[in-house]
Design a protein around this nucleic acid. Structure first.
Lengths: 331, 331
DNA sequence: TTGTATGCGTTATCAG
DNA sequence: CTGATAACGCATACAA
């Protein structure tokens, strides 16, 4: 920068002012500096700016695994949105473990990042707001609902209810809930299951807990869950899969069992991942409003980073959901 | 740091030495400093270290889109591997455009990142090594083969040949090449197509250019290509899809046309993305040795960053490929 | 084994 | 409208 200053016959301070578009610089000076910058191929040293300003221009994004379609889709939106706001995004993988999530948070606090968007799968309210004190964090998912942290979530309860009503309308009476669990930590799975059960009750359809098939939230887990249900002699004519990845596995598992979708079993997923539309059969699913969620998360985070909102004032946002009907429930 | 120094009764320099694990520090001093660090909750300011050392501890990963399964899978491996080496990873999305790729490179050079791993889809040799001078870059993909840049690639030609031989062995005689193109820039598509044509020739099977179905490299593109082939009255009994994403679309498109896989048409993909194993039918595909490729890329990059290899000495690595046979080619 | 002096490149402040 | 000064927090070189 001092080289540029010398070349333009001004001080380094004036170069800085030109670069940052400060108002009180004469047109002539601005022009001379710009010319020198071009000629010398000068580039700002961000490390120095960061040292001076205390910011890094980088936000962290902590997700269980970037190779999971849902988080990949989310990350694409976050990276694109952050870029428009002048931030780059560093991705951390937590492996959906409490340890990984805690560590991602710890790294971020080292002032390496200006803020963190974290998909919390394990970390919950009981881990205490202390973890988040004094650092801009937005949680994504369900574990932190109600805690003293900004939060962006989706309509798990309502979405699962819509999906269930859809299956009931199309004639299902025994709906397996893949990944379902009636109790336990208040995660997305529990909320979606609750939404399902509420919809069943409203419709006066009997509940059978044998249909709640808890399993790993992976494609393999879905296939495995189908196998267990059938081995256990539990009949079902519909499957509410708590994620699309599970649903892909369920379709796979049903096929292995010689059953067809939607011929023998209707299948609904959740998340509307990119692959859902092109699966065979294409998946009926609950689209949780990804774009709106990401926009809200970035807005909350930048608001915090800029210090525009007092620490005590917590915001929350729930994405607009809608049921996308495709082949897996269309006979 | 000076607060810690004061608390421990030493100089800031000694604190620095303790933190960086320098050898010549007495056990007693080390202990006192560590205690003070804990008590005061001191954290290193990375911006300052970066300003001083010229390194950031961050490497960039530039890919067309992190939501594409292939790149998501790659990114997961890169992030995990980089972490073991003490680096974090910032993801840039280039949108597979020359502009995006150039920009990712420019950003990286601003010393924001210590190095860059870039999946080059558009940027090619003609863009000149000048872009890469003086900055650690490893290219991933085919566009830079032979240029003066470190490069990690896969066995496109050989893999496509293996896939083609596999289809021929199982009785196919008219193999559509989805995404195929006989000429044009020397990208992965061209190399894979060439491998296919060479295998055909070796087997003495007639080539029909009507079977080369160029299209967008997306799932939608695959479905669309099938539609065009059928509308054009081009019969085929096998499909070599140049990526797994395309293959998923092809399966989809065939089904829309009332054809079954593998009943009517055998389908092979390329890349072995995570979804390939759980698709219905599961996809036969060419696995390009992702893990080995990522390991090689990281090793080349860190070697460059550490300055352990002269600028003129360029390395190249090709992943070990193998054909994974699954349902889509098993009648 | 520990400490002192110095500078990395930028920008806030305030004087001119 | 422009410039001199100082400071952000750390680590290299060298002295003690």
């Amino acid at each position: 920068m001092s080289d540029v200053a010398r070349a333009a016959g001004v001080s380094a301070m004036t170069v800085s002012n030109v670069i940052n578009g400060h108002p009180h610089v004469s047109e002539e000076t601005r022009r001379r500096v710009a010319e020198a910058v071009d000629r010398l191929g000068y580039r700002m040293n961000y490390a120095a700016r960061h040292l001076r300003s205390g910011t890094t221009g980088v936000i962290g994004l902590a997700v269980p695994g970037i190779d999971q379609p849902y988080y990949g889709h989310l990350a694409a939106l976050v990276i694109a949105g952050a870029r428009r706001l002048g931030y780059r995004v560093a991705v951390e993988q937590t492996g959906a473990s409490r340890e990984g999530e805690t560590e991602a948070l710890a790294h971020s606090r080292l002032r390496t990042y200006d803020g963190l968007i974290m998909a919390t799968v394990e970390l919950g309210e009981e881990d205490g707001g202390a973890l988040f004190a004094d650092f801009p964090v937005v949680t994504l998912g369900e574990r932190f609902r109600g805690a003293h942290v900004d939060h962006v979530g989706m309509a798990n309860f309502e979405g699962a209810g819509d999906a269930t009503r859809h299956l009931l309308e199309r004639g299902c009476r025994r709906i397996a809930v893949i990944g379902g669990r009636a109790e336990g930590e208040s995660g997305a799975a529990t909320l979606r299951t609750a939404g399902h059960l509420a919809a069943l009750a409203d419709a006066g359809v009997a509940r059978d807990d044998a249909l709640l098939a808890g399993c790993a939230f992976t494609t393999a887990g879905g296939a495995e869950a189908v196998r267990r249900l059938r081995d256990g002699g539990v009949p079902f004519d519909g499957a509410l899969c708590l994620t699309d990845s599970l649903a892909l596995g369920v379709v796979r598992g049903l096929r292995d069992a010689g059953l067809s979708v939607p011929g023998d079993v209707l299948v609904v997923g959740f998340d509307d991942i990119p692959g859902a539309a092109y699966a065979v059969p294409s998946l009926t699913t609950v689209a949780p409003g990804h774009a709106e969620m990401v926009a809200a998360a970035l807005e909350m985070l930048t608001e915090r980073i800029a210090g525009r909102r007092p620490a005590g004032e917590v915001r929350s946002f729930t994405g607009p959901h809608r049921l996308v009907v495709r082949e897996s429930t269309t006979r």
